[in-house]
Design a protein around this nucleic acid. Structure first.
Lengths: 246, 246
DNA sequence: AGACTTTTAAATGTCTGACAAATGAAAATC
DNA sequence: GATTTTCATTTGTCAGACATTTAAAAGTCT
């Protein structure tokens, strides 16, 4: 782990990679304390600022946490679901936002994954999940709700469905995918009529979840996907028809 | 974006967050050049090393790329599928490795997601995908293959199935989930008999994919999940029965 | 004029040395 | 014995400096 030739790559990047590899391989485990910055600087034969830059890279990925004071230092961090989730949201959001991915592609991926947890959700949903779903449906029906708030509630609804599957790994993966879609969904303006249609489908999903009818959840999700894509298409077509919107 | 009060958090973390927010919100777009480190130091009223630590945090997430020399600097990076994929693998692997998640939970999540792309794969698979799947099956049947190589080939096979769905977003999400499982799978020792069973199921999946029979892919995946979990259970039971394995 | 070479300025990468602030352990005191 | 003080350790931050890279600009030659 003390390998560090004089290749063209940044020294801090090399050091970060070396430590990261040690963590991923299991050579360093949760709670372990890294040597102090001064010691690392000596081991790698670099200066302390260079070591610090490497440690900041690792901190950005929540791989380590630092503590000041005597007996402080950098400790291998246990990656929590919350941290992993936040990172996945950022990554997925940027990936979708920067690579002109079509709405259809993103939508298809999202619903395909969401359908994957329909059967599990039907089998394991708790009253809590049902209550959350119903509450979000109520919120979505409120008059005067902004498009952005409507989307946020939509995400919360689907999040509850995913969580109902009772598998934290699935929740982590899917929540990232669903939430990353939000900026794309926010580009859509939801008319009162389209909101009613979506709310009706949400109600159908909630009913099916309550009745533990997985196939019905899947059918409703399929219809929701179809409707969402059609809605997006008409919105984009309308925009394209108009000249430059100042 | 120039906000930076004197709260207890690290200055470099605050600066990184400020810039990251500007990127995610779209205020900074791909290709934009950040001010030079010296200018940023002046804007935020901090020293250059502090600015550099902030930039290294962003670089660790592939949000920026730096270039030396005149007219160099830090540029907003287009997050590629490759970068996003690599990050997801690291995050998911660590999440699974550090949080004593049961094999069953991880396995369930993985197969649930993989089944999600069965129908799409059946509809869109190309000869290339089929060829890859067949090639991996052949490799898996080779005698003398190490458990690790067998697992790697298994991942490649499933990766081909996921890619066959023809949705890059889905591939990115699923490939991360599947590959993150590999360290867990590597804990299993595969007997010749169990390898034969897995290979037979892989062949069934390949055949169903060739025949564009989505339901058959799902059925085979379900059986594979059942078999994998049973296999893991027996391996773990055998280990638990023996005393400390020196 | 045009193509090639040299210069140069700007920027990141790295180092040295220093001080401030936090923090827990050990020593001192009551 | 309990409380307070001291103190060494470690991270956080700063200032200034030099090395290296890089592309534009200036200079030179054909």
């Amino acid at each position: 782990m003390k390998i560090d030739p004089d290749n063209p790559a940044d020294l801090s990047a090399q050091i970060a990679t070396a430590i990261r590899d040690a963590i991923v391989s299991g050579a360093l485990i949760v709670g372990d304390r890294l040597p102090s910055e001064a010691e690392l600087a000596e081991q790698f034969a670099v200066s302390r600022p260079t070591v610090r830059e490497a440690l900041k890279r690792l901190a950005a990925q929540s791989l380590i946490r630092t503590q000041r004071g005597a007996f402080g230092g950098a400790f291998i961090n246990r990656l929590s679901y919350a941290d992993a989730h936040a990172q996945q949201i950022t990554t997925s959001t940027l990936l979708l936002g920067m690579n002109d991915i079509s709405f259809d592609t993103a939508c298809e991926a999202r619903f395909a994954m969401e359908r994957a947890c329909a059967l599990l959700a039907a089998a394991r949903r708790s009253p809590d999940h049902l209550a959350t779903m119903r509450a979000e449906i109520t919120r979505q029906a409120q008059p005067g709700l902004s498009d952005e708030s409507f989307c946020a509630s939509d995400v919360a609804f689907h999040r509850a469905l995913v969580d109902a599957a009772g598998n934290p790994v699935l929740s982590y993966q899917l929540a990232g995918a669903v939430e990353a879609m939000q900026p794309l969904m926010n580009m859509i303006t939801f008319s009162a009529r389209s909101r009613d249609a979506i709310i009706a489908l949400h109600a159908r999903i909630a009913d099916a979840t309550e009745g533990r009818d997985g196939d019905q959840i899947i059918a409703a999700l399929e219809e929701l996907e179809r409707y969402t894509r059609q809605l997006a298409q008409s919105v984009f077509n309308a925009r394209a028809a108009r000249p430059q919107p100042a």
